[in-house]
Design a binder for these strands. Structure first.
Lengths: 355, 355
DNA sequence: CCATATTACTAAACCGATTTATGTTTCGTC
DNA sequence: GACGAAACATAAATCGGTTTAGTAATATGG
């Protein structure tokens, strides 16, 4: 004669339960569960009754209970380096869109380039039992990610990934877009090209730089070292690099930048220095962030769609978990394409003030 | 003679368990649990042994199991209107920082001003059993949020909130900062002031606008209606509004904007029109987003710290859940303060070209 | 008409923790 | 040496679901 379920101290109202629904629909909880999960063997009439009960009670299933028993959290981790960099919110947006489509939830971790913070983010994700992690930091940070690898948690990286069973790589086709940019400049008549790279310890930046160099070579141009600058993919970095470039005796007639923030910083410095874009110097960016369209002059840039990137990352992760849907590719290509706006134009005949 | 626990099909490796830790430390699972949760009655030596076992096995407790039994998900929802608006990432950053400090996780929902999307976000949050939701959309959207209210889920709003037991409000002191801005302009000699507001259906925008008007009145200035424009808090909106303003016969000598993106849009249009800032016209923004420092000229703006906002929101939510720590205030003040940069200066004597 | 297959349920085990009730061991104390 | 307290073990209930095994009802077939 023992009361089985005697929780609720009578004062506190119990939260809505699956068995409340079952009771209300006069079926077993198993039937409710099957109905919710669309198991086909449930009688249509009954199912209708169950759905009606769910509706009437305004019942939402408890995800944690579900996750616990099914072993599937329907959670993905998204590691980014800096949420205040406009590139990443656009990426997050894309990721969120796909996630919603597939009933997933996202845990965002912003590392701020801090290894310690990165470690905290990874720990959070493991504790929440994410089913996969998209590492969009454009770096590998191997030792920190070991915890994930050793737990066999699927991962996606951009450009470069540690070799492991369930790790995929998004391979951005830098060469295509950057080549388009260089050809565009060449077509306008530019032969004197400069480049402001990102932080060279990142593989992605090396790739962009060498894509630029090989494309230049293709048109018979060999940019001197003094026109090959290193930025850090921030506005400030772009400004510093351009200031440095302006100290040169001779200037290039066009400058390509490793990302848009760099290009925008460069534009800023050029404006301040009284140089007109594109009349005095042409500028090309990379990424095509939203802002690129609204700077002055609107930036010609190589588009790498954040949406493409996000969707590819998501698909890659999902393919490790539900291999049914997609052949588990380890390499996911991401295209790039030139977007011509108004920061590029014909070069001036005489390169520079004075000489 | 029934085998109790016989999961694991021998092939698949079992995930690390609390009882693995218990076994390894030669204690009961209850002790492991108590150790992890820092219950004081655990012997120091034993606790050390348990921690060592946890360390050695590299054990991370399963959050969903914990959440399920404890009834606490340690999850907060963060509803924002548009993640690609630079204001929000900075807010998220602040929120993430506090969340990490307190062992909370964030579920971000970007509504994109779409009621349907908003509904989806709310549903996601309820299903994940968030303990509270910060609604930072600067709007109330009452009917959609009913689902949360009726479940007694704590919420925070900015500026205006539906009346309910566990709903708090962040009250931004628009008046202080905006008054500082107006006084700053007055001190420079400006008497002809314009204002570009945000979307007027938002309470926050009404508040900013009326703060401007009352501050203007305070210095004896009454801006005519044609200088009171409505934007929509985006770059595009700022551009449109400024274009409209430029069609006026007479121009104000200074324009205040309801947020920085609007101001930046306005700057863009002014530059294109050949008007110099601040020589021909002064511009003040609101928010002090990171970008404000890097536009040309660097924007004088009223700072509303995203960090303050985020921390206040977090504290407000937490105070509903753990009323021990803080007296449950329903009103949380958020200060504002003028940041003077270079987009403001002395007015010109003769207001305009031609006449 | 009875055996077997199929269908649509229900009952119960289980996920991995917390927490409580009960039992045991080890001390310190008188 | 007996007693009570403290600290731990053991076992079981619980959270809210999923899933498997079992069962009752109906259909099919010989």
């Amino acid at each position: 004669m023992i009361k089985k379920r005697s929780r609720q101290k009578s004062t506190e109202k119990k939260r809505l339960d699956i068995r409340d629904v079952a009771r209300h629909a006069r079926v077993s909880i198993a039937t409710v569960s099957r109905t919710i999960n669309k198991v086909p063997t449930v009688d249509k009439e009954l199912a209708k009754r169950v759905w009606k009960a769910i509706e009437e009670l305004n019942y939402f299933p408890n995800t944690q209970a579900r996750a616990l028993v099914s072993g599937r959290s329907r959670l993905f981790g998204l590691l980014i380096s800096e949420i205040t960099n406009p590139f990443f919110p656009e990426l997050i947006q894309g990721f969120e869109d796909v996630a919603i489509e597939h009933n997933y939830e996202i845990l965002i971790g912003s590392t701020n380039y801090d290894p310690q913070r990165m470690e905290i983010c990874i720990r959070r994700m493991i504790e929440r039992k994410v089913e996969g992690v998209a590492v969009m930091t454009f770096g590998i940070e191997e030792p920190l990610l070991d915890e994930l690898v050793s737990r066999n948690i699927p991962m996606v990286f951009v450009d470069a990934a540690p070799p492991s069973e369930n790790v995929s790589t998004l391979v951005v086709d830098y060469h295509h877009g950057i080549r388009e940019g260089v050809q565009h400049l060449a077509a306008l008549g530019h032969r004197k090209l400069g480049f402001i790279s990102g932080p060279m310890h990142q593989r992605s930046c090396q790739l962009r730089r060498s894509a630029f160099l090989s494309s230049a070579e293709e048109i018979g141009v060999h940019p001197p070292d003094v026109w090959m600058l290193e930025g850090n993919h921030t506005l400030e970095g772009g400004m510093k690099a351009m200031e440095l470039l302006l100290q040169q005796k001779e200037l290039p007639t066009a400058v390509m930048c490793s990302n848009d923030m760099t290009a925008i910083g460069a534009l800023r410095v050029l404006a301040k220095a009284g140089l007109r874009v594109p009349e005095d110097i042409s500028v090309i960016g990379f990424d095509d962030i939203h802002l690129a369209e609204f700077v002055y002059p609107p930036l010609t840039t190589v588009r790498m769609s954040r949406n493409d990137l996000a969707r590819a990352a998501f698909s890659a992760l999902r393919s490790h978990i539900e291999p049914v849907h997609a052949h588990t590719k380890k390499i996911w290509p991401v295209p790039t394409r030139l977007t011509v706006r108004q920061s590029t134009g014909y070069p001036r005949k005489n390169a520079r003030k004075g000489r």
